[in-house]
Nucleic acid binder design. Structure first.
Ligand code: SF4
Ligand code: SF4
Lengths: 148, 148
DNA sequence: TTAAAATAGGATAAAAAAGGTCTTAAATGT
DNA sequence: ACATTTAAGACCTTTTTTATCCTATTTTAA
């Protein structure tokens, strides 16, 4: 059932939120959760996981929170998705060669291989910088409209 | 968690199996299930569903079974997948415009839209005829190797 | 009329997804 | 030192989805 999990969706929103912050500026779970409309307790858990995997760094205590460990242009959508869901695998036979006993003769197998490659390549090409900028552009356009 | 369900996987194997049959030749569930290595009772239910949706026609009684209602070249991978899993929807915001309240300003939304389009287009381009032929070619090559 | 074969539908068991709670640990300002 | 703030960790519940199995019923050719 090719659908993004909420976990990944929320993590993406969170990382996107951090992408707008100045470098070094921490941001707490509650702010992110509120701004992005996400259950705080759940998001906290997701960010723990992101921290363990090195995508964000956490600071406890007063003025604590999270920062990105890399610049938005060096973080791809694919990375965050795979951090939350594990490696993308469109069909079981892509787990490893030979997982499905027929994969060497099955005419559907190469189709999944190619679909996987295309899907992953596209997601790999999407950086958070691009997305953050697209968002700024949209916000600016809206402003133009209002002032015009 | 972008993964094909067993239901769809089995249905694909089933339709592929029928693609090798002569037009009008019926084929029972047991034969398909055995040949494709699929639980017969489960496959039976899946084929009922395919029949209701018009992809196959069923014949009861002795010498009964299933035939395709269209020629393999007119059946795409996408159709069978969507018959079993419903419309492909990579992220909830693609269900309909406005489903996610942010979809008009969200910079991730267009990414999913494009990813969906690419994915669906690729799957739509894969017909069972192509796949069946690819399989024949492979079988022939294997024969050549053996006889050589 | 009997045996083969699909139909209809429920039962269900296991797994994954989605979310919450509560306690502990670390940082910081006073 | 201490209170406050905030993340970390561990555990738990509920819901949804997936993948089956099962049994009774209908249909049809021989
Ligand atoms: S597509 Fe072919 S190889 Fe992949 S799981 Fe299905 S049968 Fe096996
Ligand atoms: S990607 Fe953007 S629009 Fe789609 S669900 Fe997430 S937030 Fe909403």
């Amino acid at each position: 059932m090719f659908r993004l999990s909420k976990a990944a969706e929320y993590a993406i929103r969170g990382v996107l939120h951090l992408s707008f912050k100045a470098e070094g500026e921490t941001c707490g779970i509650d702010e992110i959760a509120k701004a992005q409309g996400v259950p705080p307790a759940y998001l906290a858990k997701l960010f723990q996981s992101l921290a363990r995997k090195g995508f964000v760094r956490s600071f406890r205590g007063v003025e604590g929170g999270f920062i990105l460990t890399k610049r938005p242009k060096d973080i791809t959508l694919l990375e965050i998705i795979e951090a939350m869901e594990g490696r993308i695998c469109l069909n079981d036979c892509l787990i490893y060669a030979g997982y499905c006993p027929k994969d060497d003769v099955c005419p559907v197998h190469p189709v999944w291989k190619e679909a996987h490659k295309r899907f992953v390549d596209y997601l790999k090409g999407c950086t958070f910088e691009e997305m953050a900028n697209a968002s700024k552009v949209k916000a600016m356009r809206t402003k133009e409209k209002i002032s015009a």
